[in-house]
């Protein structure tokens, strides 16, 4: 058990070393969400009336946070797929290490990267007018939620990354999966304007429950985007926790199994 943890941490450390050796990766993976914050804040923010104090940016920030951590799925998938193609996974599997160390280390590493990105985004948000009002503890709790959600999504990425033949496929598959998920939600605009079937989808979408949950934790009234009265919109935090547990309960064992039978395509 101790070995399993220390093995995983060595893999995590490897990812952090990579960032130190090629800092561009960190810089560019931070620029994109920062760009999103600025674009949405200034392009859409002016024309969306939220009816709440503080304006659109208060509602936008939780949405962009969730979108960003949801995309951890893509980062994990692409990273693992690259390791697979280069034969690194073969080498790791020939070592006397715990059978889950490599995938745990990878998801943890992507989680650490998320922390850095979230901090930078939070600062950017603050600079453009984001002011969470719920107090330090709840704000912190909000970020914990975001971290865990990113970690859970990362496990879906493990399975995809180990299943596809090539990095580029991993890139495309994950984009096709995550992009609609983040837009068919309450993250950027109210769901009430969508056609009915999409509203139902958006209402149950884990991205929506996460966004609504974070809005609550950051001290906003959760009316924007929620389909009034439905279970997920009334209990976004509870639903988010259920989703995170579900995702991990399904994808952690599947991913570990996939890793142990992994072979280069």
């Amino acid at each position: 058990m101790m070995n399993a943890i220390s093995d995983a941490l060595i893999i995590t450390k490897r990812q952090l070393l990579q960032l130190a050796r090629v800092p561009e990766v960190l810089i560019f993976s931070t620029i994109q969400p920062v760009m999103f914050v600025l674009l949405f804040r200034y392009v859409f923010g002016g024309s969306i009336d939220t009816g709440q104090p503080g304006g659109y940016v208060q509602l936008l920030m939780p949405g962009i946070f969730v979108q960003t951590v949801a995309f951890t799925l893509a980062a994990t998938a692409v990273g693992l797929s690259a390791d697979m193609q280069k034969g690194l996974i073969d080498r790791f599997r020939s070592l006397p290490i715990s059978r889950s160390a490599v995938v745990f280390g990878r998801t943890l590493g992507d989680g650490v990267l998320n922390i850095v990105v979230l901090v930078v985004m939070g600062i950017t948000g603050f600079l453009v007018g984001w002011r969470p009002t719920s107090g330090a503890l709840k704000i912190f709790l909000g970020f914990v939620f975001l971290f865990v959600f990113g970690f859970a999504m990362s496990w879906i990425g493990v399975l995809i990354g180990l299943s596809v033949r090539e990095e580029r496929v991993a890139q495309n598959v994950t984009f096709i999966a995550v992009f609609p998920l983040t837009f068919l939600s309450n993250a950027f605009a109210p769901t009430t304007g969508m056609p009915k079937p999409l509203q139902y989808f958006a209402e149950w979408n884990p991205v929506s429950t996460m966004v609504a949950g974070c809005r609550e934790l950051f001290g906003l009234k959760n009316e924007f985007g929620a389909t009034a009265g439905s279970f997920p919109s009334e209990n976004p935090l509870l639903m988010s926790i259920v989703y995170m547990i579900l995702i991990m309960a399904v994808f952690v064992p599947l991913s570990v199994r996939k890793y142990n039978n992994a072979s280069k395509k």
Partner: peptide, 14 residues
Amino acid sequence: IGLSGQYAAVDETL
């Protein structure tokens, strides 16, 4: 055992 394969399985960024 030691295994060394057809493709150099080391981390190229490191």
